[in-house]
């Protein structure tokens, strides 16, 4: 293996222009066995030229994935786009009528649609902020020689592997008017605080956010924890010598160094908020009175309960556009912050 490796290196080198081979020699002193980057780049370029003979086209390799994705996702997108211009009850035998952009006109004037959008935005801001604050603090604590660190980690991470669909009924029981939370409040003499949590607009939304935060903090925590392991201890040491206290170090040094992670989490949060369905649906069915309506739940209701497939498809198209734009914007934001 080694000898053929070297043979390739030697063979490659002879084809290189002077500049590249000079850098090869420079870095060859450092580590003879590792191929220096300029050489590797050069060689990759050559493989591209001759690769056809050496390996054949890569198209058959990516074909299964493409067929699956195009067959399911792109087919569905196209179909949704077509359906969004129909007035149709969804049954194959029932007549459909082409209505053009009518569904979209209706959507723009639909108050529930705009409320669902507004909920999504609020939901993102609140869950992202709270989750980030908790998981960042917790990750910093877990990096500070604490006892039982593994136990804490498991506790905060376990909700991540549980299905929202399984846990939502549990939270329903907890926050029910006759549920365990109100029971605890009564026994503590705080009965005046007890209320039908899921039946009031504001508290129902708060519960939906709470469950989401409960579920996803573990993931943010793992990411921040990993990011903090990458921080050079000498930087922290230097800050300490300059007289920075624990909180100052945390805020002025560690937080900025975790910026990449925060942005990655924001991307996830935007897309995740747009995808929200399980928790609001199972906890409050999008109610009371649309107070926990999200785009996903609204699409489902419009389609399954009201049998307005065309209108549901129009909302789906809006959701798709938002998701793609949101994904691209946060990606661009990420790239920009990497540049600076």
């Amino acid at each position: 293996m080694r000898s053929s490796d070297e043979a390739i290196i030697v063979g490659g080198r002879s084809n290189l222009p002077v500049a590249a081979s000079r850098s090869t020699i420079d870095s060859a002193d450092e580590d003879a066995t590792i191929i220096p980057p300029p050489l590797r780049k050069r060689r990759a370029g050559r493989t591209n030229g001759k690769g056809r003979n050496l390996y054949g086209s890569g198209l058959p390799w990516i074909l299964p994935a493409l067929v699956l994705v195009i067959g399911m996702i792109y087919f569905s997108i196209g179909y949704t786009g077509w359906m969004s211009m129909l007035d149709w009850s969804g049954f194959i035998l029932s007549p459909s009528e082409f209505v053009g952009p009518e569904n979209y006109a209706r959507m723009v004037q639909d108050e529930v649609f705009w409320r669902a959008m507004w909920h999504t935005a609020i939901f993102f801001v609140v869950t992202f902020t709270v989750q980030t604050a908790i998981s960042f603090t917790f990750a910093a604590i877990m990096h500070s020689q604490i006892h039982l660190a593994t136990v804490y980690k498991v506790v905060i991470f376990v909700p991540n592997v549980l299905a929202p669909a399984i846990m939502a009924p549990v939270f329903r029981v907890i926050f029910d008017a006759n549920g365990s939370l109100n029971g605890v409040l009564e026994t503590m003499g705080l009965g005046s605080l007890a209320r039908p949590w899921l039946a009031e607009d504001f508290t129902a939304m708060a519960v939906v956010m709470l469950v989401t935060i409960w579920q996803w903090t573990g993931l943010s925590f793992i990411l921040f924890y990993a990011a903090m392991s990458q921080i050079d201890p000498q930087i922290l040491e230097a800050a300490r010598i300059d007289g920075a206290g624990n909180l100052r170090t945390l805020w002025s040094i560690i937080w900025p160094l975790c910026r990449g992670t925060t942005i990655a989490l924001a991307t996830l949060g935007v897309i995740g908020s747009l995808k929200t369905f399980d928790v609001p649906w199972l906890i409050a069915n999008g109610g009371p009175n649309h107070a926990t309506e999200f785009l996903g739940t609204y699409i489902y209701q419009t389609m399954v309960e009201q049998k307005e497939f065309g209108y549901a498809a129009a909302i789906s198209v809006a959701l798709l556009v938002l998701a793609i734009v949101g994904g691209l914007l946060t990606r661009l934001g990420n790239r920009q912050s990497e540049g600076t």
């Binding site: 493409l66 087919f75 969804g90 194959i92 369905f277 497939f309 789906s316 998701a323 994904g327």
Partner: peptide, 21 residues
Amino acid sequence: WMLLIALTVPEAVLLTPLFVT
């Protein structure tokens, strides 16, 4: 890029066409 865009597609978008299909 086709795969990247598919990455952001929410499940809910697939509901109507998949159900009909």
